[in-house]
Design a binder for these strands. Structure first.
Lengths: 252, 252
DNA sequence: TGCGCCTCAATTGCATGCAGTTTGAGGGCG
DNA sequence: CGCCCTCAAACTGCATGCAATTGAGGCGCA
């Protein structure tokens, strides 16, 4: 059985699927930052399809939460709030505990090899760009989910992992992936050993540490509302609230 | 005003959203059985929109796993395998444990009243059709999820609950909902009391019992004409009155 | 009668066109 | 000098048209 994701339900056509995959990748590698605009025409032109198809792809990505669609407005890469990021990680923890619970002691030799190969790749990518490290780290988790042979679980884990990726690019500082890689190795070891409780707790703490490293504080960042950013400054001024800002300076 | 779910990302347009909601409802009330065909034209005519919109709606539902889309083939209501049903319930259990964990002891008076009102409605519907009971039971869980104020959790719980509904119509015998209603009341009580562990275990066993009741022989469903089935669902909103009754859609 | 090929209506895949809405840039006015 | 108003360009919402694919019934042939 080739480990074909081949989500039976997700991508109706190949062209739409192609665009979805490309955009997903661009988003999780932060080539497209949260808030980036995604006009249908430009997408269509870039991928050599009509607006109809680009539109459909955006619809799918919106259903996954990677893109925000508002009526009559240009689609943008989603900008999850800090709270949403926290929620996503909470959900992710539960889902991935389920993954490793199902997998503990049940991996084939081939699967173990595949996992090790992947972590090796993560290792090699450590000197490369952060974007690639983050993508590989995420793909490790998706690889695990795939091994459960549960399409539903695969879909949810993938989605929520992508969303978490998104939040990393918003709220995280430069990624130090060493520990993550070691934790991945530890998880593989525990899976092979078949220690269900151990691997679930490993996965829990792994994700928890990633989350807490990433979501330390609602960092003032590009994409946040200007008025929020200025709130602390406004308090100091003579009690008068900021009545009106002259033309909002568009951040990018 | 009304506490509308208003999923920010899911339904790009209102027309698409309308069709999605109508079809979702038709599916979980088993007016559309698994395997029922959903040709774009027929949907478009029934709802007074073009194929483009119907197509988009089908795409969304496919992303939710309620509909199966295969290239160049008529879309059909999803027919989850028994294993997929089991997986869906496993995921659902974890997600809903998360819901009640977040909610335990944190419900406002208004929310408690809302839950009680809903369960009362379930009670009253006990004599009505099974379809309505099942829908109400599902909506109880979605109502709970909504109270977490976590859009992501709401979306996942809703999706997976709908999927479970689907499987019930495939593998379950006539629903005896009394116990479910009592279990709902017990969950509310534990939530109010704030006993986190208790409510999590209650939710677990509640869903587990629903799931294990769903291990019966598959029920062969005879299909009616799609346009007739959808007639009552098309009324919501200002749908065009399309009087034309085109060819009969034969449902397998 | 039974089996396989062939044809055609039904249906999807996709592009394009038109109408309505939003954006944002420039000019006039206080 | 800054604010508001206006208007055009940009963009989305949606319908329609044409080509490609499917699969189901009909026909011929053994």
């Amino acid at each position: 059985m080739a480990p074909r994701p081949a989500s039976k339900t997700a991508e109706p056509s190949d062209k739409v699927g192609l665009i979805c995959r490309a955009l997903r990748r661009a988003i999780i590698e932060q080539a497209l930052a949260p808030g980036a605009k995604l006009p249908e025409d430009s997408l269509g032109e870039r991928f050599g399809v009509s607006r109809t198809i680009a539109r459909h792809a955006l619809g799918q990505l919106a259903a996954e939460g990677l893109v925000e669609l508002r009526r009559n407005r240009i689609a943008v890469v989603a900008t999850p709030s800090w709270q949403e990021a926290r929620d996503a990680f909470d959900i992710r923890i539960e889902l991935e505990r389920l993954v490793v619970r199902q997998l503990a002691g049940k991996l084939t030799k081939a699967q173990i090899a595949e996992l090790n190969t992947h972590v090796d790749a993560e290792d090699r990518a450590r000197d490369g760009s952060d974007a690639v490290s983050i993508r590989l780290a995420t793909e490790f988790h998706i690889l695990l989910a795939n091994m459960t042979n549960s399409p539903i679980l695969v879909r949810y884990v993938s989605e929520v992992a992508y969303r978490c990726c998104l939040t990393l690019s918003l709220y995280s500082r430069p990624h130090s992936s060493e520990c993550a890689i070691n934790e991945h190795r530890a998880i593989i070891a525990a899976l092979v050993k078949g220690d269900e409780a151990k691997v679930m707790s490993l996965m829990h703490s792994h994700l928890d540490s990633v989350a807490s490293r990433a979501l330390v504080a609602p960092a003032p960042q590009r994409g946040r509302d200007l008025l929020d950013i200025l709130a602390p400054y406004a308090e100091e001024g003579e009690g008068e609230r900021v009545v009106k800002m002259p033309k909002v300076v568009r951040v990018r």
